[in-house]
Computed example of a mutant assay.
Amino acid sequence: MRLKHWKPTGLALAAIVTTAAVAFAVPSAMAQRDPAYAAARADGQIGEQPDGYLGFASSPTPAIRALVQDLNIKRKAAYTERAQATGSTVEQFAFTSGCNLIAQTKPGEKYQAPDGSWKTRDGSPPVRDSRCP
């Protein structure tokens, strides 16, 4: 993956961070209204990944798998649109969004640490990739 040596700087970082917040206003709000999404998140079945997409912290039901796949498709569409607007790649934009989404997790929610392990957020800051802004 090319992101290994990528480190956002200056104006590019500011643009990516700003638009990442905007990119999630609609998909996140829509997802949070879905009781199945809220329940799966609260139960620790799904969580945020460093790549900006939702992942499975445990074996999902077919319904949860379909829900997450749909949300990830919507996220990729938002990342693609915003990456073009900021002059970054989809992967760079998704990574920065993943950093922000992991930072926004609440205590009790799952997220994936840089080493690939699933963690449950407690009162302390989450473990994030060292390249996160």
Rank of each mutant, 00 (worst) to 15 (best):
M1C: 02
R2V: 05
R2Q: 14
R2F: 09
L3E: 11
L3I: 06
K4G: 14
K4N: 11
K4R: 15
W6R: 08
W6K: 04
K7R: 11
P8N: 04
A12S: 14
V17F: 02
T18R: 14
T19V: 08
A21H: 15
A21I: 01
V22M: 14
F24D: 13
F24P: 00
A25I: 10
S28N: 09
S28M: 11
S28D: 12
S28R: 07
Q32Y: 08
Q32D: 04
Q32T: 04
D34P: 03
P35K: 11
P35E: 07
A36T: 10
A36R: 15
A38G: 02
A38E: 02
A40K: 13
R41S: 06
R41F: 01
I46D: 10
I46V: 12
G47F: 10
G47P: 03
E48M: 08
E48K: 05
P50R: 05
G52M: 06
Y53R: 15
G55N: 06
F56H: 14
A57M: 11
S59A: 14
P62R: 10
P62F: 05
I64W: 04
R65W: 01
A66W: 08
L67W: 00
V68G: 04
V68D: 04
V68L: 08
D70V: 02
L71Y: 13
K74D: 09
R75P: 03
R75G: 03
R75D: 02
A78D: 07
Y79G: 09
E81F: 12
A83I: 12
Q84T: 13
Q84F: 12
G87F: 09
G87S: 12
G87A: 14
S88D: 07
T89D: 11
T89E: 10
E91K: 13
Q92M: 14
F93G: 09
S97Q: 04
G98N: 09
G98L: 07
G98H: 05
N100D: 04
Q104W: 05
T105L: 03
P107H: 04
P107M: 11
G108D: 00
K110D: 08
Q112M: 15
A113M: 04
A113W: 04
P114N: 06
D115M: 06
G116F: 12
G116M: 08
W118I: 03
T120I: 12
T120F: 01
S124K: 15
S124I: 09
P125I: 12
P126T: 10
V127Y: 01
V127E: 07
V127I: 13
R128N: 00
S130V: 12
C132P: 07
